[in-house]
């Protein structure tokens, strides 16, 4: 089983019961190549929702799909203008007119949550994509660079990681001034070192493995080895790491917005909605309660989806 894990993706499995199967990352990378988009996406969907996948995983992917759809359609679905104050309808309890009530200046909470979804979820995905890209690029460059440069890069990662990411992002966002862009920059700066370190670890392991050494003897260049073998081999772990990261990113972003370094008002952000509602929680609990539920639901959905991606990428963990 253990040697099985070290096999390069794309090579058919040699495990007697899974002969001919290829790794999840390989399937995913072929699925994303333009030539095979139709076939690939069908395969991915089968893989994500097919009968072989556990019920809990299917629920997780379903929730994530619904959330992403809401994020894309949020502003269209919102029944009211999320930013238009209406002093006649301030602090109304949830009811037929305003399903989730209104806030202190009479804005519809449901509409604000829906528009907030667009902002929160899409920026969370963007942050993770950027952080992952930077991490992978830095790790690959470090792996190709001379030993001392590699060492320096990894020490810099360590330094970044010795400030807790929330505090690092908080300091950076505070320095850059409150805006959505500065939150994204700050979060990317806080998250990339972990990805870089993880990727570097896998690359180091792959580049010293026997099959890479034999390819080197045949005369493959280091760059080619990196692009053709080592990076594809680390993709599984990188996908898993990235998908697990989204959940934490959503929570952390809302925390930053809660502390007031997010997008400035009147922008509808889940974190700042909670902050706004906490002063009159005893009289109008709905203003803080529902955005918090939205954050929890998204974090749990993406968290479960991350677990599911991991179990797809690593069949040996399917049973646990």
């Amino acid at each position: 089983m253990k040697t099985e894990d070290k096999l390069p993706p794309g090579l058919p499995s040699t495990h007697p019961d899974r002969r001919g199967e290829v790794s999840f990352a390989y399937r995913f990378s072929t699925a994303t190549s333009p030539l095979a988009v139709g076939r690939g996406l069908g395969g991915l969907a089968r893989r994500l929702f097919g009968a072989k996948t556990f019920l809990i995983n299917r629920i997780a992917f379903g929730l994530v799909a619904v959330l992403l759809l809401l994020a894309l359609l949020g502003p269209v679905l919102a029944p009211y203008d999320p930013n238009a104050p209406n002093t006649n309808a301030a602090l109304q309890a949830p009811g037929a007119v305003h399903w989730l009530g209104t806030d202190d200046v009479g804005r519809d909470v449901l509409s604000r949550i829906l528009t907030g979804a667009t902002q929160t979820l899409i920026s969370a995905v963007l942050i993770v994509v950027f952080a992952t890209l930077i991490g992978v690029i830095v790790a690959s460059a470090a792996a190709l660079a001379p030993r001392w440069a590699d060492e320096v890069v990894m020490r810099v990662c360590d330094m970044f990681m010795s400030i807790p990411s929330l505090v690092l992002a908080l300091g950076l966002a505070a320095a850059l001034g409150p805006s959505l862009t500065s939150i994204i920059i700050a979060m990317v700066a806080a998250l990339w070192p972990a990805t870089a370190r993880l990727t570097r670890g896998i690359l180091r392991e792959t580049m010293t493995s026997a099959y890479i050494e034999s390819a080197q003897i045949v005369g493959m260049s280091r760059l080619r080895l990196m692009v053709r073998h080592a990076i594809p081999n680390s993709l599984d772990a990188i996908y898993v790491h990235a998908s697990m990261e989204i959940s934490g990113t959503i929570v952390m972003m809302s925390g930053l917005a809660f502390l007031g370094v997010g997008a400035p008002p009147p922008s509808a952000d889940w974190g700042s909605m909670i902050a706004q509602g906490q002063d009159f929680i005893t009289t109008a609990w709905w203003v803080s309660l529902f955005p918090g539920l939205a954050i929890t639901l998204s974090a749990v959905a993406f968290g479960l989806a991350g677990d599911a991606v991991r179990s797809l990428a690593d069949p040996s963990s399917r049973r646990s």
Partner: peptide, 30 residues
């Protein structure tokens, strides 16, 4: 592992791990 108790604990952990602390703090205080 793999039995009902394990599943229940893991489900609780998943839900509880996704709750943002500041919101939980507000809700607990309330």
């Amino acid at each position: 592992e793999g039995r009902g108790g394990d599943t229940a604990i893991r489900l609780i952990l998943v839900l509880e791990g996704g709750v943002p602390v500041f919101w939980l703090a507000i809700m607990l205080r309330w």
